[in-house]
């Protein structure tokens, strides 16, 4: 039996990347180094390689794009924009592979979908230097174990991503930001059907409305019933450190703990001036983590020093 040609890569660029990664010695991929210290400092003697670049196949009519991991998110989104589309990857500098490995959501995840939902298929190089393929090119797929989910946010500790197929989404007809100094964020979330983002810094509330223009106007009218809103060009400056709260907790942030903050309402993500205390996993979950890591990377050569449990 022959595997379907579309599911096996014969791309020499990927093969060259696999050769470069090889099968011995500590190794890591450098993207744009925007999240270089996430999950721990890389061990000193680690060899640094770079992932292949380029958009391989963009099919706007399928709402999918096949792209190599070293491509910047900015370049990808520029190409997609020409066809009126985008992905759920955050636009904050960095490469496609880096964004997926860091696993951080765009603050507009409510509107654009969570990062992990953007990844349909992944080709990564294993600790043994082999190209592993998982997931599939279609928007719906339950064929086998969902390794793309495992890979997102894994900080390159299970495999080094070479190429992915991402889901794209149409860019809505209009996107507008509004700010209010008197409406409570909880009321905002209740008043509108599906805001793309609601931000709160303890004083002001920002909301991004997207959709067809008359609907956005109607949503604004509903907002104006609960407070005064003015159009603004975008979001406030975000403090540097990410915290992960539940949506309920994120509505009642204590700045004595976080410092100045901007809370992403509905999601639970908070940007704060203080760093979040170290988190880790324990008990049975930790055991599964350790077994999975040992199974995927028996010699611990992939991104040594980093641990997704310590993000």
């Amino acid at each position: 039996m022959v595997a379907s040609p579309l599911l096996v890569s014969d791309d020499p660029v990927l093969a060259a990347f696999a050769d470069e990664v090889g099968d011995t010695g500590p190794v890591s991929v450098a993207g744009s180094r925007t999240r270089w210290s996430l999950g721990g400092e890389l061990a000193d003697d680690t060899r640094i390689v770079t992932a292949p670049t380029g958009i391989v196949k963009y099919q706007p009519e399928e709402m999918t794009v096949q792209v190599r991991a070293g491509t910047t998110v900015a370049e990808l989104h520029e190409t997609l924009m020409a066809a009126g589309q985008r992905t759920g990857l955050p636009e904050r500098g960095g490469t496609v592979g880096g964004a997926l490995m860091a696993g951080e959501n765009d603050l507009r995840a409510l509107g654009r979908g969570r990062l992990r939902e953007a990844l349909l298929q992944v080709r990564y190089v294993s600790a043994e230097g082999r190209i592993i393929n998982s997931g599939g090119p279609t928007v719906k797929n339950v064929s086998g174990f969902d390794l793309p989910r495992l890979i997102v946010g894994s900080l390159g500790t299970l495999g080094l991503v070479a190429e992915v197929i991402l889901r794209t989404n149409p860019i809505p007809a209009v996107s507008r930001w509004y700010r209010s100094n008197d409406a409570s964020p909880a009321d905002v979330v209740e008043a509108v059907l599906a805001p793309s983002a609601v931000l709160f810094d303890g004083t002001s509330t920002w909301v991004e409305l997207e959709g067809h223009a008359p609907d956005v106007d109607a949503e604004l009218t509903r907002l104006q019933a609960i407070g005064s809103f003015e159009a603004v060009s975008g979001i406030p400056e975000l403090p540097p450190h990410r915290w992960s709260f539940t949506p309920a907790e994120a509505l009642a942030i204590d700045p004595a703990i976080t410092g100045s903050y901007v809370s992403v309402v509905g999601l639970g993500l908070v940007f704060a001036s203080q760093t979040q205390p170290n988190r880790t996993v324990t008990g049975a979950v930790q055991e599964v983590h350790e077994r999975v890591k040992a199974n995927f990377d028996p010699t611990g050569r992939l991104n040594p020093g980093r641990n997704p449990a310590n993000k």
């Binding site: 696993g103 951080e104 959501n105 992990r116 339950v142 174990f145 969902d146 390794l147 989910r149 495992l150 997102v152 946010g153 894994s154 299970l158 990410r242 992960s244 709260f245 539940t246 949506p247 907790e249 994120a250 992403v264 999601l267 639970g268 993500l269 988190r279 880790t280 996993v281 008990g283 049975a284 979950v285 599964v288 983590h289 999975v292 997704p308 449990a309 310590n310 993000k311």
Partner: peptide
């Protein structure tokens, strides 16, 4: 074990994500 969590970005590997569909 509790996989995933109610918070925005639970730490660690997305074991919740792989359990779904397993």
């Amino acid at each position: 074990a509790m996989l995933g969590g109610l918070d925005a970005e639970p730490q660690g590997l997305d074991l919740r994500g792989v359990f779904v569909g397993s």
